[in-house]
């Protein structure tokens, strides 16, 4: 029933229907017709400035200065050091490796996420029985704390855990989370599983917006299930796909909890360390926030670059 409520998004965009009388009013009232709106929004605007805008700028500033933790209130000199923090960060092989690790993660996680969530959403979209139950079961991993589900995965994927018991002689040695080859793919699989429900819901919403007539005319043209999926569904949900690509990439770049807990802090041998994990170790444990900030700045630039590429090649012309 709820699915009929499809995207009321731009039903009345703000500022629509602005008449010339409105502009007149603005001259007399510099804050608009309801200046109260600004008062209502003031706490939120303050919050965004203090928690997002200022720290964002501060982070870039820190990355270009010699910054260390000082006692609160102490006046210390923080000289400008140019790119020195970036050089320090990226002459460390562990940092380079962590970026490679996230690359492996994204190569596994992002395609798997797009394919599985679209597949499951399409299947779910067309059934009438068990729909509610299935939707809830797919969504539950997304709702649950990583820390809680990590505990089960540790139990499932440890050396003589259930997964290896089922695989028997096929089980990798050393086991999943302590193997240099398998640690990162296992984490990628974990995150795919955990987040999939969210993307399924995104696709379910997008599928409501694909006109039914397109399927009917595809069927008239003799297209089978697979053909109509490829030629109607896939292009029809393209905006959602772009969004799924973007969100899963950003989520992947934010990876911290899983390597911290599943592989005991990015092990074995740094094979599953993520940039955020290195930022935590370098910045807060070893007390070099400036180097950590530099890693963060580069990470964000890389993510923006990937997002731009995705948008360019998957987003189509619209």
């Amino acid at each position: 029933m709820t699915d009929t409520l499809t995207a009321p998004v731009a039903s009345r965009p703000p500022g629509a229907g602005k008449s010339s009388g409105d502009r007149h009013g603005r001259k007399r009232r510099p804050l608009g017709r309801n200046p109260l709106g600004l008062l209502f929004s003031a706490p939120y605007l303050l919050f965004v400035l203090a928690i997002f805008a200022y720290p964002l700028i501060y982070s870039v500033w820190i990355s270009f200065h010699d910054f260390f933790f000082a006692a609160p209130g102490a006046q210390v000199d923080r000289p400008f050091v140019g790119f020195a923090n970036f050089v320090t960060a990226f002459s460390d092989p562990a940092v380079i490796r962590s970026f490679g690790n996230v690359g492996i993660f994204l190569l596994i996680n992002v395609p798997l996420t797009v394919v599985l969530s679209l597949l499951l959403a399409t299947a779910l979209n067309r059934i009438t029985h068990f729909r509610g139950f299935l939707r809830v079961s797919y969504y539950i991993p997304y709702l649950t704390a990583s820390v809680a589900v990590v505990a089960v995965w540790l139990f499932l994927f440890n050396g003589n855990g259930l997964v290896n018991q089922i695989l028997g002689p096929l089980a990798p040695k050393p086991s999943w989370l302590i193997s240099e080859q398998w640690a990162m793919p296992t984490i990628a699989l974990f995150v795919t599983w955990k987040q999939l429900g969210f993307y399924i819901l995104l696709y379910l919403a997008a599928l409501q917006a694909v006109p039914k007539e397109l399927y009917e005319s595809a069927a008239t043209d003799g297209a089978g299930g697979f053909r109509s999926f490829m030629s109607v569904t896939v292009p029809g949900v393209r905006p959602a796909t772009v969004l799924v690509l973007l969100v899963s990439t950003v989520t992947g770049a934010n990876l911290f909890t899983e390597p911290y807990l599943l592989t005991g802090g990015g092990g074995p041998n740094g094979a599953s360390a993520s940039p955020v994990l290195i930022m935590y170790q370098e910045g807060l444990q070893q007390g070099h926030p400036d180097v950590a900030a530099a890693i963060g700045v580069v990470l964000v630039i890389v993510v923006l670059g990937i997002a731009w590429l995705q948008n360019r090649f998957a987003g189509g012309r619209d």
Partner: peptide, 17 residues
Amino acid sequence: LVQVVPFQLLIIPLYVL
């Protein structure tokens, strides 16, 4: 915009602040 700001860039400055 806030929704696409990656939290990882913010952890260091937010921690400092």
